[in-house]
Nucleic acid binder design. Sequence first.
DNA 1: AGGAATATTGCTCAGTCTGCAAACCTGCCT
DNA 2: AGGCAGGTTTGCAGACTGAGCAATATTCCT
Lengths: 218, 218
Amino acid sequence: MISQEVPPVGLRERKKADVRNALQDATLRLAIEHGYENVTVDAIAEAVDVSPRTFSNYFSSKEEALFAPNPYISEQLTAAIAARPADEAPLEVLAAVLVDMSDHLIARRDAWQARMRLVAENPQLRPRMAAQFSRFEVILAQGVALRCGRDPTSDPYPGLVAGAAAGALRVALAHWQPGAAQSLHELLTELFASLAAGLPDVPPRTAATDHPNESHPS
Amino acid sequence: MISQEVPPVGLRERKKADVRNALQDATLRLAIEHGYENVTVDAIAEAVDVSPRTFSNYFSSKEEALFAPNPYISEQLTAAIAARPADEAPLEVLAAVLVDMSDHLIARRDAWQARMRLVAENPQLRPRMAAQFSRFEVILAQGVALRCGRDPTSDPYPGLVAGAAAGALRVALAHWQPGAAQSLHELLTELFASLAAGLPDVPPRTAATDHPNESHPS
DNA sequence: AGGAATATTGCTCAGTCTGCAAACCTGCCT
DNA sequence: AGGCAGGTTTGCAGACTGAGCAATATTCCT
């Protein structure tokens, strides 16, 4: 199970998390308003009322500010993968963990959909997002390898499963648009089912049903 | 079928290709010698004996110089995907096309293995490589979508297949080390078989056989 | 309260990347 | 051969990024 939110205990850590979130929100907002390329670090820092130097203390680049996940995601994912029943196959494990994690994403639905729309409209952002996802993929691969008692550097299997799973998540996010017919849960579940079936020629059905989207949990 | 090499006809185009290749080679060589972070664009330009400004005319960044594929790869892949028999399933198509393309990679075996070793030793390069692979993935997705008569922006299936296939290629390249037990062909074929089987719990066998690597075709 | 630990900030500097205009080279036509 | 047209290389200038360092401010803990 992935914990609901970052749990900063002290005032210091809470403030730090606040600044981090504010920087990310401002980056996203300004990128939507003025176009990603036209947003400077200075402008973001000014919007959050910190010095440009402070921005660099949190993020090493603009795209990291746009796409960096919850800083605890690594530990959370690793723990969640390890916690799955031992008899589950790796792909099942990742499916369960990522579907579980999607609750987390749904809670920030507007921000995520805005992010993905930004990427869809600015193709030059796609590689930058992929770069962030690659870190995510490494975490998954290591988690799988740990479960299987394999060495991810010498055994290609964990990387293969992690790559397919991360791809499914990426695709699901890209197609999780405001007016989409399927909820993120449904989409992810369907994509993982397709992976488990060996990517048959024609998927069961896609974008067919007419479910309403999940409601805001906030 | 993917054509053997870029066929620049005129002197102008040949020169241009030469400069491009020289810049890529120099980038790789210098990165190995001095570490990626310590290589400047100025140094690369000087090694190739062009102005730093010219480097920017060919590549928009250092990582592009390191990882950018053959500039014709997009058209070649698209054509190769379209040329496969109509009754082949998308995953089979990509498997066939990428295994075919691996001949191309094997011809540049030393460069590729050096590249991958560089990435393995410098984790910060992984996201940059992933960024380049994402363009590759888009090409695959569009090729699949075209074959299936689907819209890649509204149908997640092409993206899912392309993501899995690109992941397989990435993993295969990462594990295609000088002393590896399996050839790149074998590795790729095995990984695609695993994908087609729905990523079963335990792959048939990995890193088990003791085949010699393929010989230099040059 | 007071010391230790951590965060923020300004300063500075090397490096990246882009636009622009001049000089240069190749391909092609007369 | 000569010369024009279009593409390529180059130098220059300028904006932005990203990192180290030291000073300052804030929070934590005893």
